[in-house]
Design a protein around this nucleic acid. Structure first.
Length: 538
DNA sequence: GCTCTAATAT
DNA sequence: AATATTAGAG
């Protein structure tokens, strides 16, 4: 056992006077059993201070074995009752009743039933943890009492005197519990004994505290979020760096778990049937727009047009996933509804590990290896259809429940809050044109796609990275395309819903309860759309 | 000597 | 499972 080198073993206090004689209880032979080694260590120290002879065991089985062999070498046994691998009460029974050794139960639980059970199983006394020196000073009584009991038994007499002291002892324990319980940390000027047995209550990361923590991390960014800086930012009295470090470790483990979970979807070639959203908390590494402006015509594509690209990088720094939304205004494509043959080409790409260009299955968008699509996929239904923002090649799991103008007259958005509080929204604005007016102008404003925990109040703008983290927002795209010739409404006009795929959230009750579980989605056929919508979204 | 992190203990 | 503590690297 590793308990031997105990620096606190030397007696610091006077030997207990209780016994009257010098020879006893000095030298009382105690076996202490507790799986909790720190408890055991303290117990040993305290018992030694009482000038008892102490053997400690952190394994109940070993203790029993020892007792079976050398029962006579012990006067009394102290044992925890809550121990892994063994029923502590059974141990009490064996020692207290079968071996007939005085045995005292210890527990942090002073529930009456627990205590009663212990006593019924042969315990002579109950010591509530944390155990104080005063309590241990008195355990010799049980040895004396037992001897007296044996004597009077021999004489055929009963001796009731001791019951009182039993009760006192238990009451004393009760009170000591109140003292040290709910401790307002005012054990400062207490005696050394109390110092040995008192303990700081462990920190509880309340939601408030945790959100402070999250805030700090968001302010610092992934790279700089280390315990000390977080601690500084949190500015919470009583909190120390270790507390933060521990919580940070847990937090990071959570992130790792999430990205691992995410990874499984990339390996899945099952198409749209198994896609998942990004879990909240996945670090967003970068977010921004590249290129594109009207004044920045692109020629490198071999076509005449404009190009923009929004990029999100998320996941781990070592192996980031890049999700790009790009739009190309080009004249190389044509559409009957567009007299000028100018179309918007949308492309969504994702890649991992910096291997841009390698199309892969994205958890949200599914397989979009052929990811180009013609624009007009902003579905501006005047009312809820159960689907929106569907392109010919891909869909995402937006289920809109609101469609309407917002903020300013030309702004249209749709969003639905999903059962787990994550919402998905699309929005588009037509700053230069009245909605539904196909002919009057060819302007197309911004549009965006966001996911998050609420309606996007910033439709048409990028979602801020920090919002992503704190709200569980993980994706977004947007960008200005003012003045580009396109009419979305007309593009979708006449298209029936069978061209649309609806991705619906499918979530078990268990998943709903798990904060970190994002939802899984699946494609359903148009025929089941209405029913499904009703089912999932009322 | 201090801080961070991963591993381990409680 | 949540939090605390420790070990060892930088």
């Amino acid at each position: 056992m590793k308990i031997e080198n105990n620096s606190r073993g030397s007696p610091e206090t006077a030997p207990p006077q209780n016994g009257g004689g010098d020879e006893f209880p000095v030298g009382l032979r105690v076996l202490a059993v507790d799986d909790d080694r720190s408890c055991l260590l303290m117990l040993e120290a305290l018992l030694r201070q009482c000038r008892y002879e102490v053997i400690v065991k952190d394994k109940a089985s070993e203790a029993l074995e020892l007792l079976r062999k050398n029962k006579d070498q012990f006067d009394i046994v102290l044992s925890d009752v809550i121990m892994p691998g063994i029923d502590g009460f059974r141990l009490l029974e064996i020692v207290g009743l079968e071996m007939d050794l005085p045995v005292i139960m210890m527990s942090a639980d002073d529930n009456v039933d627990t205590v009663r059970k212990g006593i019924m199983h042969g315990a002579r006394d109950f010591l509530l943890k944390p155990i104080r020196l005063e309590e241990l000073k008195n355990i010799w009584q049980h040895v004396v009492r037992k001897k007296l009991g044996e004597q009077s038994e021999a004489k055929g007499e009963a001796n009731n005197n001791n019951i009182n002291s039993d009760n006192q002892n238990i009451q004393h324990n009760r009170r000591s519990r109140e003292d040290s319980n709910d401790g307002d940390d005012e054990q400062n000027d207490e005696s050394d004994d109390d110092h040995l047995t008192s303990k700081k209550p462990r920190l509880t990361w309340t939601p408030e505290l945790h959100s402070k923590f999250i805030n700090a991390i968001n302010q610092l960014g992934v790279a700089k979020a280390v315990p000390k800086r977080i601690l500084d930012l949190m500015d919470t009295p009583g909190l120390n760096r270790e507390n933060v470090a521990s919580h940070l470790q847990k937090y990071r483990n959570g992130l790792r778990k999430n990205s691992a979970q995410m990874g499984q979807y990339y390996d899945d070639n099952g198409g749209l049937n198994r896609i998942s959203g990004l879990a909240p908390g996945i670090p967003l590494l970068s977010f921004g727009e590249q290129g594109m402006s009207r004044s920045n015509p692109i020629e490198r594509f071999g076509i005449n047009g404009y190009h923009n690209r929004s990029v999100i990088e998320y996941g781990s720094t070592q192996s980031p996933v890049t999700l790009g939304f790009s739009r190309t205004i080009t004249q190389s494509l044509s559409h009957p509804l567009n007299q000028q043959n100018i179309l918007l080409r949308h492309q969504i790409t994702s890649s991992q590990g910096g291997q841009l260009g390698r199309m892969m299955q994205h958890p949200r968008f599914g397989d979009f290896a052929s990811s180009s699509l013609l624009s007009g996929n902003m579905n501006r239904q005047p009312e809820f259809h159960g689907s929106s923002y569907m392109g010919s090649q891909f869909s995402h799991d937006i289920v809109s429940s609101q469609t309407g103008l917002r903020s300013f007259p030309s702004h249209d958005y749709q969003y639905k809050q999903c059962p787990n509080g994550i919402s998905v929204s699309t929005s588009g604005s037509l700053p230069q044109v009245a909605r539904n007016d196909i002919a009057s102008t060819n302007a197309f404003g911004s549009h965006s796609f966001t996911t998050g925990t609420g309606p996007s109040s910033l439709a048409g703008q990028f979602v801020h990275p920090s919002a992503c983290v704190s709200n569980g927002l993980v994706a977004g795209s947007g960008g200005e395309m003012n003045g580009d010739l396109l009419d979305i409404q007309s593009f979708n006009a006449g298209k029936s819903s069978e061209n649309h795929q609806l991705m619906l959230v499918e979530q078990s009750p268990e998943q709903l309860q798990t904060e970190n579980t994002f939802y899984q989605t699946r494609a359903i056929s148009p025929g089941t759309l209405d029913a499904a919508v009703k089912k999932y979204y009322q």
